[in-house]
């Protein structure tokens, strides 16, 4: 399945819903969208991976890039993921220790340390 991207605002948070396959071919589109959001002023970003059915190292690289960019801008970045195959990818790469990972969007927003929990 092709990559799908949809953005919605929840309070002060920008939620990017990602679906389909995030790989070496589609990851540049994800990078572009995240950059657009950040350049457009989004500072509290939650990426919902709930509908992702494939994620590779290129996609992970893009997510780390967004995390760093937001951190250096004083913002926050969190991921929503509750699928075991995807969680295993985060564990194997040790990225589960880098990203705040939450089972739901609500959990991600209320756990935001920058204090804008809805």
């Amino acid at each position: 399945m092709e990559l799908s991207l949809a953005t919605r605002a929840v309070g002060e948070h920008t939620v990017l819903e990602v679906g389909g396959e995030v790989d070496v071919y589609t990851a540049p589109r994800l990078r572009e969208r995240l950059l657009e959001l950040i350049d457009g002023g989004a500072r509290r970003v939650v990426v919902d991976l709930g509908r992702v059915d494939f994620l590779d190292s290129t996609g992970l690289g893009v997510l780390v890039g967004a995390l760093k960019r937001l951190r250096s801008a004083g913002g926050s970045f969190a991921l929503v993921c509750d699928k075991e195959p995807l969680l295993k990818i985060f564990r194997i790469t040790a990225l589960d220790q880098v990203f705040p990972l939450h089972p739901t969007v609500d959990a991600a927003i209320s756990a935001d340390p920058t204090g804008a929990g809805a």
């Binding site: 590779d56 190292s57 290129t58 992970l60 690289g61 990818i89 194997i92 790469t93 040790a94 990225l95």
Partner: peptide, 8 residues
Amino acid sequence: TTGVGFAL
């Protein structure tokens, strides 16, 4: 990405 790819 290279490092993560190898880890996977």
